[in-house]
């Protein structure tokens, strides 16, 4: 970021100097080309920062979760212990039977609960 800002400063200061203005007819200096690339990059970054300030409406999902007293996201519905992660037994592997390896991909995403994470 610091380097990008330094570039922006160097470029603006250089362009403010009349004798080294960018000429569209002549051959561009390397530093001018760099300034253009970084200028565009910074504009894209600023656009991303501006875009990140919008907040989509989540009221429908929130009120449904409140009404139904929901406790979990419906992301992993492939296994009963992954559908309601917070309500399942501790996310122990081999919970179906001793030799059962974790066979659902969602099981690979979940991590073992820390010792103090639950009261049970």
């Amino acid at each position: 970021m610091a380097a990008a800002l330094a570039f922006a400063y160097v470029t603006v200061a250089a362009w403010a100097t009349p004798e080294i203005k960018v000429s569209f007819s002549g051959r561009w200096r390397g530093s001018n080309r760099v300034a253009w690339v970084f200028g565009l990059g910074l504009i894209a970054l600023l656009a991303v920062l501006a875009d990140a300030t919008r907040s989509p409406d989540r009221s429908a999902a929130r009120s449904l979760a409140r009404e139904l007293q929901l406790t979990d996201l419906a992301l992993f519905n492939e296994a009963r212990y992954a559908r309601h992660l917070t309500q399942a037994d501790r996310h122990a592997a081999f919970q179906d039977h001793p030799m059962a390896l974790e066979h659902f991909p969602a099981g690979a995403l979940t991590v073992p609960m820390s010792a103090d994470a639950r009261l049970d």
Binding site: V48, A52, R54, N77, E78, P105, A106, L109
Partner: peptide, 19 residues
Amino acid sequence: PILKGWSVLYPKFTLTPQI
């Protein structure tokens, strides 16, 4: 594909952007 795993009923959703 990583999150979906073997889920058949995978929801369509957009995430709230924040930086």
